[in-house]
Design a protein around this nucleic acid. Sequence first.
RNA 1: GGUGAUGUAGCUCAGCUGGUUAGAGCGGUUCACUCAUAAUGAACAGGUUCGCUGGUUCGAGCCCAGCCAUCACCA
Length: 598
Amino acid sequence: MAKYIHVSVAWPYANGDLHVGHLAGAYLPADIFARYHRLRGNHVLMVSGSDSHGTPILLEAGKQGISARDLFEKYHERFLLVQQKVGISYDLFTHTDTENHHRVSQDFFTRLLERGYLKIETQTLLYSELEQRFLPDRFIEGTCYICGYNGARGDQCDNCGNLMETIKLINPRNRDNPQDQLVPRQTDHYFLALERFIEELNAYLEQHESHWRNHVYNFSRNFVKDLHSRPITRDIDWGIPIPLAGWEDKKMYVWFEAVIGYFSASVEWARNQGTPEAWKQWWYNPQSEIYNFIGKDNIPFHTIIWPAELLGVSGLYHDGPEPLQLPYDVPANEFMNIEGQKFSKSRHHAIWLADILERYQPDAVRYYVARAMPESTDSDFSWEGFYQSVNNELLAAWGNLVNRVTGFSYKRFAGAVPVIDALRPEDEALLARIEGGFETVGSLIERVKLREALGEAMALVREVNVYLDRREPWKRIKDDAADAARAIYTALRAIDNLKTLLAPWLPFSAQHVHHLLGYEGQVFGDQVIREYAEGERRHRALVYDPARQSGTWAKSTLQPGQPLREPAPLYTKLEDSIIPEERGRLGQPREERPIIVP
RNA sequence: GGUGAUGUAGCUCAGCUGGUUAGAGCGGUUCACUCAUAAUGAACAGGUUCGCUGGUUCGAGCCCAGCCAUCACCA
C-alpha cells in the first residue's frame, strides 16, 4: 500500500547564494530520499522555502543598500533557479513572506495563546535613541565583560569565544553609527512555555529511539532536561506581525515561525493544486511519516521546539480526533568543510552552487557530494576528491559501462537490443544479483543510510563490468554470435535496472540512459517554476509536476529487438587542471552572475 | 564551563549486541584484456594495530575512567 511520506527540508536564509554545504547538509539527501519514494509510488510531499525574515536579512540588506524585501526576493529567485538546475525536486519551494505563511503562523500564535502556552515576560534590552527602536544583538558591539576585548559583538565575543548577554556588554555601541546612544529599556515579549511539554516530548523521543541517529537522539534527550521558555516575539520591524492590538511594533521571532513553514507550505501546496484539504493526508494521518532533513546546528529546533509547537496547536484546521503528526525522523547531517577548512562567507572560503553548475554537470556534483555526504561526521569537499570521484568512479565505472555496452550493441546488433533465444545460468545469476538491489538499496534509503546505499548500487555497477570481462562478448561475436547476444542483452538489462537504482542520486543521467535504451517518456516528472497569486501579492515557487513521471522502482523488462538511440557518453571527463583552478578561486570574492537553467 | 558527537590504511570512509590473520572505494605496483571517454578485470603492497594513558575481561577498534584534538548546540 502506498505510504504518505512528508519530506520537510530546512529553510535557507535568503541573504546569500546557496553553497555545497546546503546541498550536502539537507537538500541532496532530502531529494534522494524523495525521489526514491516517488519511484516506489508513495505519496511524497516535499516542501521548503526561503526564510525571508530575521536579522541576517536586515544585515545583508543594509550592506547591499536595498530593502529587506528586495534582498530576499532576489535570493529567493536565485534559489529557485539553482535548485531547479541541480534537480532538487520540491513539490513546493515557496517562502515565508506569503500571505498564507503569515496567516498560518498567526493562527499558531493565537491557538497557543488561547491554550495558555504563551506568557508575557519583561526583558531589558538596548534601545537606540537615534533609530528609535530596540537594536538587534548583531547590530551592537562593545567591550567583552569576560575577557575585556573591545570588539565583542552583541551575541558573541570573537576574542574569547563566549556568548554574550548583550545587556551586560561594557560601553555598548551601535555598530553602524558610533554617534548613537544606546540605553537599557524594558520591553514586553511573549514567551513559549516549552517546559510544559517536557513529559510529552520525552514520550515522543522514546517512541522513536530505535530508528533515530544516535547523536540526534542523545542530544535531544539531554536538551529536554533543562527546557525553558523562549521568547517568540522581538522588537524588529521586518517579520510577521503579532495578531494582537498594541503589539504593532513587534514581530515574531524567526525561530518560531520559520519551522511552521513545513506546515504552511503543505497547506499552500494543497491549495495550489486545487485540493485545499489534501495536506491533511500527511499532517493528520496517523500512518504518515514526516522526515526533517536538516544540518546538525538545527537539531533541537526540529526534535524539541517544532514538535512542541505542533503539540501545542494540535487540532488546528481539523475537526477529527487525529492529533497533528510529529516528525517521524530527523536525519540531521553534520557539516561539509571545503579543502579542510570551515565554510566562511566573509573569507570567501566557499563553493557556490551557482558557480560550479556553470562548469560541471549536475549529476557529477550530486555524485561527489553524495559520496562525501557528512552523514555521521563532518566531511570534506576537496577538488582533488571531486576530480577523482567523477573521473574514476562515476565516469569510469558507470558512464563507461553504459557507453561500452550500448555502443557495442548499437554497432554490432543493428542499432537495437539484441534478439536472444534463452539466457545462460550466469546471465540469470547476474540479473538476479542486480535485481536484488531493489531490496538492498531501497531498504538502506528508507533507513536514510544514503552513503551506504550509493556504495551498494556502485558495487552492483562493478559486478556488471566483471561479468562482461568474463563473458567477453567482443570475442564471442566472432565465433558464437548468439552467445554474444545473450551477454549484451543481459548487460543492457542490468544497465536498465541500474539506471533506476541510481536514479535517486543521478536523475539527469538516469533520463539519459532511459533515452539511450530506446524508451520514450520520462523517469521523473518535471520541475517547473510557477507564479501564484494571493490577495495582494504574488510569489514564484519551484514545483514538482509528477504528470509525466513514468519511472518506477521495479525490475527492467527490456524487450529484445527494441531500437536503441545513438550512444553518447553520459559524462564529461574532467581535466586535472581544474584542481588548481578551483583551488585558486577559494578565498577570492566572486560576482553573482545570472543563473541560466538549460 | 555543560551536553552530544567525531578521531581506524596515502585519501574518503565501513566496522552490528567485545572473539579467528582489522574491511571497502579511490590512489600505488604488477599482470591480463581491447567492446569502451587509455575506460575494464585480476593479483599484490599498504594500518609502528584502530587519537593518548590507564582499567575491566580468558579476550577490546568495539565496554569504563581520565586526557588531547576537532565540530555543533547550550550557558
